[in-house]
Simulated assay, not measured.
Amino acid sequence: MSQRQIILDTETTGLYPDSGDRLVEFAGLEMINRQMTERSLHLYVHPERDMPEEAAKVHGLTIEVLEEKNAPPFAAVGREIAEFIRGAELIIHNARFDVGFLNMEFARMGLPSVEELGCKITDTLAMAKEAYPGQKNSLDALCTRLGVDRSKRVLHGALIDCELLGEVYLNMTRRQFDLMGGAEEETQQEKTFVASPTQRTGRLKVIRANEAEAAEHEQYLDALGEECLWRKSTSAGERA
């Protein structure tokens, strides 16, 4: 059975989960066998605090906007998020940031951490740094490099970022996936070859050296001296 993968992103009030910042948006898109399923989870969350102007400029979510969307506090949706991601591989760009906020919010509710929920974490930022060292590896930069259309992304948003990240991840891993598929095909070909060896007919034609070639060979062996393995093996064969 293939493992569930969740393309995941969050938006927050700031950068520091240990200093009072809170999660304000969660999005997760389920993928199985490199195909998006119809299952997803997208939630706006009231942070129960003010929204810094700098953060609102990034994602466009002011407290007024969240209240208009009737966004609940995290305590009302935390268990739903935990059950949605449980046991899945999480595909996240800059995973340390999102996992840090999720673990902070889960801890406030007494819920298990992302790791304790049995999630495997794949960080596409780390993948990109390895694949494209010394280059810009933001989500925008990767979309441009890999030909992913990001024209709909006016502001940062967890849902649109998940959709873009899903395409980026599939592009970044396509070659690896193709190589894995090719390896399986090659293995099957090898099995077929072993099961049906080529049948030889007739006898091999032996072409013997002429006198001049034989004499030249003997001169070469003389130059090797007493340690010549060819003559030792020939003598042993004759004694046998």
Rank of each mutant, 00 (worst) to 15 (best):
G28I: 06
R22V: 01
L15F: 15
N33M: 07
Q35C: 12
M104S: 12
E53S: 14
A75M: 11
L102S: 05
N70M: 09
R108H: 10
G20H: 10
D21L: 06
E83Q: 14
F101S: 06
F26K: 01
A82W: 04
I92M: 02
P72M: 07
S40I: 00
E30D: 09
P17R: 02
E25D: 06
F26T: 01
R79L: 13
E68T: 11
A107F: 06
A76N: 12
R96D: 09
E53C: 05
L43D: 01
E68N: 14
D98R: 01
I85C: 04
F97T: 08
I91H: 00
E30F: 05
E53N: 09
D18P: 00
E25L: 02
Y16S: 15
L43E: 08
R86G: 03
S19R: 15
T37Y: 10
A27S: 15
E83S: 13
P72C: 08
V99I: 14
A82N: 06
P17V: 07
E38L: 11
A95Y: 03
V99E: 01
E64F: 02
H42P: 00
R39C: 06
A55R: 06
G60V: 05
M31D: 00
E67K: 13
F74A: 06
E83K: 12
F106R: 05
A71M: 08
G20A: 11
V24L: 08
M51V: 11
E64T: 06
P73F: 00
M36V: 06
E89K: 14
E68Q: 15
Y16N: 15
T62L: 09
L41D: 05
D98I: 09
N103I: 01
M51N: 11
R79T: 12
G78N: 07
E30P: 08
R96Q: 12
Y44H: 12
L23T: 03
G78E: 04
P52Q: 13
R108E: 10
M31Y: 06
A82S: 13
A27L: 03
A82M: 07
E80Y: 00
F74N: 05
R39M: 04
I81R: 05
E54P: 01
D21I: 06
V24H: 03
L29H: 02
E83P: 00
E83G: 11
P72W: 01
A71V: 06
M36F: 13
E64V: 03
H46A: 12
E83N: 15
L61E: 04
H42Q: 12
A55S: 15
E48S: 14
A75Q: 13
N70Q: 14
A56S: 15
R22T: 01
I32V: 15
D21R: 08
R79F: 05
K57P: 00
I92F: 00
M31P: 00
L29S: 04
K57D: 13
E48I: 01
E89Q: 15
L43T: 00
P52W: 11
P52S: 12
K57S: 12
P72I: 02
R86E: 14
A82L: 08
F26Q: 02
P52V: 10
P47M: 10
I91G: 02
S19A: 15
H42I: 11
R86I: 01
P73N: 10
A55P: 10
M104E: 13
N70T: 09
P47H: 08
G87V: 03
T62D: 09
N70G: 07
I91K: 02
L90Y: 03
H59N: 15
A56E: 13
L102T: 02
G87P: 08
R34L: 10
L66R: 03
A82H: 04
N103A: 04
